[in-house]
Design a binder for these strands. Structure first.
Ligand SMILES: [Zn+2]
Ligand SMILES: [Zn+2]
Ligand SMILES: [Zn+2]
Ligand SMILES: [Zn+2]
Lengths: 137, 137
DNA sequence: TTTAAATTGTTATAATATTACGTATGTAAT
DNA sequence: ATTACATACGTAATATTATAACAATTTAAA
């Protein structure tokens, strides 16, 4: 269970609060709730919800994390080319979330948008599933 | 500005709270927030958030309304064949929401799901746009 | 008609998110 | 260096969204 931060150059431009929130999401890989993040980072000096929400807002804006709208949670971006588009599978039983990396799907959505002449700025696509683990049980 | 409830047979099986909430959403056509619904229906006898949320939950379950996840709002279903799938355009400027009725798009998403072997129970698709009205200004 | 399931009403509380205000810090032009 | 500007910070208060718990009642089956 080794954590592998990449801490690339761009991360250096983040502020302290932004960086510790990003690191937590990175280490977790799961969607986390704002107040859970707050609790987890009390020892790092985060004291108020606003500090968390401000960091989250900025990280979303930078495309480093995504908000999973229907879970009121935030998750590290697992992709390099999302812009602000998001596509997830969400298990209805256990809540497990995976960001879809499938370029086929991404291109499929883009095509749909073109074909239907939707003049969009971005999209959010949530597929609800029963994950393999939950299917067995 | 005439309201045109349909009040079909199935509506008769709704309870009073469910029906007045549904009627309000039907008349409005816009996404409404739970506490706005509560305020609006105080005179009809709704007193507590729970009464609203319970009615909303049931109506969502019945497929008569949808939750617009990223707006924490609820909107009348404008379609006959959604099951519990949802597809909206959401204006980023004014918040205007339209349910997509385009069968082409719906079928496109279904195809995407098949092609990518996604074993889904339902999906939620939110396209963020700048609506025509907002584009002008 | 007895039983089980669903719905109601009410109070309290939890969970999520923002406003408001003052301060500090970094950056770029003068 | 000084000013101006944008960004971020810290803190307290408050707003918004949603659920838990419990008792009573209605509805639909069996
Ligand atoms: Zn991503
Ligand atoms: Zn699962
Ligand atoms: Zn619908
Ligand atoms: Zn608009």
């Amino acid at each position: 269970m080794s954590s592998n931060h990449t801490h690339n150059k761009k991360d250096q431009t983040l502020t302290k609060n932004q960086r510790i929130v990003l690191n937590l999401l990175q280490d977790s890989g799961e969607p986390l709730k704002a107040y859970f993040i707050l609790d987890s980072l009390k020892k790092e000096g985060l004291n108020s919800p606003l500090q968390v929400y401000r960091a989250l807002d900025k990280l979303v804006e930078l495309g480093k994390i995504h908000k999973v709208e229907s879970l009121n949670s935030f998750i590290i971006c697992n992709n390099s080319n999302c812009a602000s588009n998001t596509a997830f599978t969400i298990c209805e039983r256990c809540g497990k979330v995976k960001e879809i990396k499938n370029n086929n799907l991404t291109e499929g959505v883009n095509e749909l948008v073109r074909e239907n002449k939707l003049n969009i700025t971005r999209y959010n696509l949530e597929f609800y599933v029963v994950c393999n683990t939950c299917k067995i049980n």
